[in-house]
Design a protein around this nucleic acid. Structure first.
Length: 420
RNA sequence: GGAGGCGUGGCCGAGCGGACGAAGGCAGCGGUCUUGAAAACCGCCAGGCACCUCGCGUGUCUCGAGGGUUCGAAUCCCUCCGCCUCCGCCA
């Protein structure tokens, strides 16, 4: 959610920033008109309510029966007018809220121009690109041969884009999770297992709703939703709260299963487990001071690089183009890891700085030195997307005989040096 | 799922139709005192929105949520939600 006061005070600046993301200036104009209407109704309503309260008190203070009757008659008139006004006020507020809710965050001034994935700007690279003197297999071939990924049976049980992980793949998952949590703990990230079914509020707060509803599994009967990332419950953790400045930044490493409908991705990444409806992920989430969020964003990015390169993976960091940002993000860095099976760099992790956009929706604030309540900044970044990391590990560390070397960092957790 | 009880500010807890956004206490913050600390004493201490003479300003809304009665509701009525106790069921 954008700051309505800023929209009021510097509409041209906001319009220009949103234009970079392709937002129609008319949408902003509508917001301004709705805001004006709302404020008009609030002013009128507040004045009437003030009269109503004042007169009601006077009635209590006695007077003659005649005075009393006259006052009651007057108040009734005011109340009648308010009965008309209040629904109008509520509608105006809801209309403004709805119009404001669909506007995305303002992009960071340095976020690259562009509409799509290809417009991302490469910032850096990490790890050595793997070289093979044999025909590489992809993770499906490797996983099936090793008996650790079973896609046909996943489809049998749950439909397309579902799979079973078995044996070493499961141990690999737990090793990866432990590896990530161990790396993050000294950085101040508290491990969290959040609820994966949430109410509507946290989804709205993180801006997965109302835009993006088609990506979310809904349990309608109970008015709950399956989250697509633990970003949702982690953001909700401090919703409606006012944190102490001394406690900031507050960092969490959430482990959860993630559910995504992947609507509109027919035909995209249909092979293997790259794009599935259910996967597990360790997610970093930070609540921090506004003036520290850029620094925090760089920290999340660097941790991602550290985690991936620590697994012997090769990839690059890209700065996502403004047109390709999620609604909440002002800026986003992705780590794209080289997957030998696809001979391509694919997104394994992503870190977003959502500035105060989510915090405003969530009402997550802190009290500053002057005693003012100020919106926090929120950031989220993948620590380990388990499924995709397994893909990268299998494909990167495969050997001519179809076995896979286990990176040193995982060996203690996995108890083996090779998957065979 | 059944029966009963309860939902008030960061916490505890009064208030049960008229000046209540709400006594009192605790915690917190500032100050006096002190070499320092403690104690004692004094003061401050919920959030949202709107407005303006932008001030430690004015108004308005919020006592689980929503609706109703009334000139007036934290207080009365209805519905819902949550928590606690007991019973049932289940892992």
């Amino acid at each position: 959610m954008l700051d309505i006061r800023r929209i009021r005070e510097e509409p041209e600046t906001i319009a220009a920033a949103l234009a970079r993301r392709g937002v129609d200036p008319d949408a902003l104009e509508e917001v301004r008109a709705l805001d004006a209407r709302r404020r008009e109704l609030i002013t009128e309503g507040d004045e009437l309510r003030a009269v109503q309260k004042q007169r009601s008190r006077e009635i209590g203070g006695a007077g003659s029966p005649q005075e009393r009757e006259a006052l009651i008659a007057e108040v009734k008139k005011v109340s009648a007018r308010l009965d008309e006004l209040e629904p109008a006020q509520r509608e105006a507020e809801e209309a403004l809220e709805a119009a404001l809710a669909v506007l995305p965050n303002l992009p960071h001034p340095e976020a690259p121009e562009g509409e799509e994935e290809d417009d991302a700007v490469e910032l850096s690279a990490f790890g050595a690109r793997p070289a093979f003197d044999f025909a590489v297999r992809d993770h499906v071939e490797l996983g099936e041969a090793l008996g650790i990924i079973d896609i046909p049976r996943g489809v049998k049980v749950s439909g397309s884009r579902f799979a079973f992980l078995l044996g070493h793949a499961v141990l690999l998952e737990f090793a990866l999770v432990r590896y990530a949590l161990d790396r993050l703990a000294p950085e101040g990230f508290t491990p969290v297992i959040p609820p994966v079914l949430t109410r509507e509020e946290p989804l709205y707060g993180t801006a997965f709703l109302p835009t993006g509803a088609e990506q979310i599994y809904a349990v309608e009967r109970d008015e709950l939703y399956l989250v697509g990332t633990s970003e949702v419950p982690l953001a909700g953790l401090h919703a409606e709260e006012i944190l102490d400045e001394a406690d900031l930044p507050v960092r969490y490493a959430g482990f959860s299963t993630c559910f995504r409908r992947e609507a509109g991705t027919y035909g995209k990444d249909t092979r293997g487990i790259f794009r599935v409806h259910q996967f597990d992920k360790v997610e970093m989430f930070s609540f921090c001071l506004p003036e520290r969020s850029e620094e925090e964003h760089a920290r999340l990015r660097d941790l991602q690089v550290d985690l991936l390169s620590g697994l012997g993976l090769h990839g690059r960091v890209v700065d996502i183009a403004v047109g390709d940002l999620g609604a909440s993000a002002a800026r986003k860095y992705d780590c794209e890891v080289y997957l030998p099976g696809q001979d391509a760099y694919r997104e394994l992790t992503s870190a977003s700085n959502c500035t105060d956009y989510q915090a405003r929706r969530l009402r997550a604030r802190y009290r500053d030195a002057e005693g003012e309540n100020v919106l926090l900044h929120t950031l989220n970044g993948t620590a380990i997307a388990v499924g995709r990391t397994i893909i990268a590990l299998l494909e990167t560390h495969q050997r001519a005989d179809g076995t896979v070397a286990v990176p040193e960092a995982l060996q203690p957790h996995l108890g083996t040096e090779v998957l065979a």
